[in-house]
Design a protein around this nucleic acid. Structure first.
Lengths: 332, 332
DNA sequence: CTGAAAGCGCTTACAG
DNA sequence: CTGAAAGCGCTTACAG
């Protein structure tokens, strides 16, 4: 003899239902999944009792027995864009047999950073994981050999041995520069963090292709944004003709740059045209003249879920890779 | 004989580790939890092997046996404010033995609406649930008798038989009206959705207390925001002296009202003072003169987690209720 | 159509 | 200090 008395007495089990219905636990299990191996009348009775007792099937027990949890983990940094992406991923997951589990990071400083969440998702035995954002380049973790991982929205500078629905940042820089050049801008600067690798290279290539002189405007991650903006606006003074800024960071920096230039009496987008990454809700609420390179959220979600489903259906199928173009949304 | 061959062969179990280490599965289990019932050297060896094999304990199996999952569910509508609240709740959960599971709704239209998520969280047998926002009044679901639920940030109009860390909306309206009145505003209107119950009453009380005539400005949920704003700005014309609007909906409406009034050449906050609910990130990015009634996120999170811990430690303790004041953040 | 039984991966007594 | 065994709540063969 062994084992104490675990189990939460307040949770209803199939056995509890069986006791009330006067049948075997097995019959309850079958009835709950609508098997025709239980007589119609009994099935209805069992379902009625289950509903009345507030039965909810345990994912843990079912998953343990079946060898698969039926869960899919979503993980990433939840910013304005990712919130919409998550919504669209969830919408599409709803048509599948899988239930989503969400792990959300908000900033690197939080104790619930990447590894914490991923460990929880793995401990829940998610059958696949969609990573829609984490700091820096996508790194393939060791566990990805066991639990398939699909990267969504990253822009890797080197191939990653995982399924990936990526965004074409090189093309994005080209779109931005060409757009600004076509509107007569010649002084097109790049405001970017040092740790966003390869962006300067894409920018320089795009500028050269447009016959313009690159003007990167780097800043350190710890430089206050107000100082960056002040430096940048001061640097605009020397130019003749309209200046343009390609802001490759957050919509926040783009917005602060906008507000600061307006306060200085500049007229946008004539004196300064700002192009930023990613739509932020307030750009439209306030009708700000900030053009953005936007991720096609619907497509991104659609392809990502398709890739996940394919991977789950055919675990040994070849690696899937897609590179989606950004969409330039002009606001003047 | 019975049962097929379930189990995911790609997942490492304690038995797998035991086979490699040449000991019993039991010894592995004990070693993993640092029990001193396993010799120091063996324990170290087992831990080494477990790490090398990438072992992650199954929450399902452990929870099933222990009768408790060790999970706490967080659920709500993820808007700008709630994102920060979730971050703070997570931060505080990190000091506990519990792991968070996040269910996030984004709009009522999504197929992953309230019931879907809550059912998933219950199926995962979360030990408690924190609900930080759902549409309308807090309703106590039937399952709350089994799984404790803590409401966080709601403002119920009648007592709810659950633990609750609420926000004092009546006090908030009073703060807003008194603030505007003290700055010389006499025409203080209320822009509000019909479905936010009791707000008009709080507003009228606050206006009467300030010796002012209430001017509710109701609109239907399906009236386009641009039409609401147009109507409202037209209604401002008739007044003498500065107008003030208390916008009791989203920061979005407040921002759109701001943008529309600026486009019409109004000077804010002199011609129109706007007070909205809840800080939104862009108010500060763009230094908008929109005063807000803000939820004290840190306190809210702190108290909520304390309430959850108390409830879990003493399931039969009396109901806990707190009513926190909003904080008026003046922006001019 | 129905039930008894095995077993998923753990934890918890229990027996050496 | 160590291992064999029971059992959590399910699902899946298997036997009637």
């Amino acid at each position: 003899m062994a084992a104490g008395k675990p189990s939460n007495p307040s949770q209803v089990t199939q056995s509890d239902i069986a006791a009330v219905a006067g049948c075997s636990q097995n019959a309850v299990a079958l009835a709950l999944r609508g098997s025709n191996r239980v007589s119609e009348s009994r099935r209805r009775e069992i379902l009625r009792i289950a509903r009345r007792m507030g039965y909810v099937r345990s994912i843990a027990a079912a998953g343990l027995r079946r060898g698969r949890s039926g869960l899919i983990g979503l993980y990433g940094n939840l910013d304005e864009v990712r919130v919409v992406l998550v919504r669209e991923l969830l919408r599409r997951l709803h048509d599948t047999q899988y239930k989503p589990i969400l792990g959300a990071e908000f900033e690197r400083l939080s104790p619930w950073y990447k590894d914490q969440w991923i460990n929880t998702l793995l401990a829940l035995r998610v059958e696949a994981m969609v990573c829609f954002a984490w700091s820096g380049e996508p790194q393939v973790p060791t566990w990805a050999r066991r639990t398939p991982i699909v990267f969504c929205g990253f822009s890797p500078t080197k191939p990653v041995p995982c399924d990936m629905v990526a965004m074409d940042r090189a093309g994005a820089l080209k779109q931005a520069v060409d757009h600004l050049a076509s509107r007569g801008h010649r002084h097109i600067a790049l405001l970017q963090h040092y740790d966003l690798t390869h962006i300067p290279r894409y920018y320089q290539q795009a500028m050269r292709d447009a016959g313009l002189e690159p003007r990167p405007f780097p800043f350190a991650a710890d430089e206050p944004r107000s100082a960056i903006i002040k430096r940048f606006l001061a640097s605009c003074k020397g130019h003749r003709g309209p200046t343009a800024a390609v802001v490759i960071t957050t919509a926040r920096l783009a917005s602060e740059l906008y507000a600061a230039s307006v306060r200085r009496g500049m007229s946008l987008p004539d004196d300064l045209a700002i192009v930023g990454y990613d739509r932020a809700p307030w750009l439209d609420h306030l009708k700000l003249p900030i053009t953005t390179l936007e991720q096609p959220i619907d497509e991104l979600a659609e392809h990502t879920i398709a890739v996940v489903r394919r991977r789950l259906a055919e675990p040994d199928s070849p690696r899937q890779f897609m590179n989606l173009p950004f969409k330039l949304v002009v606001r003047t």
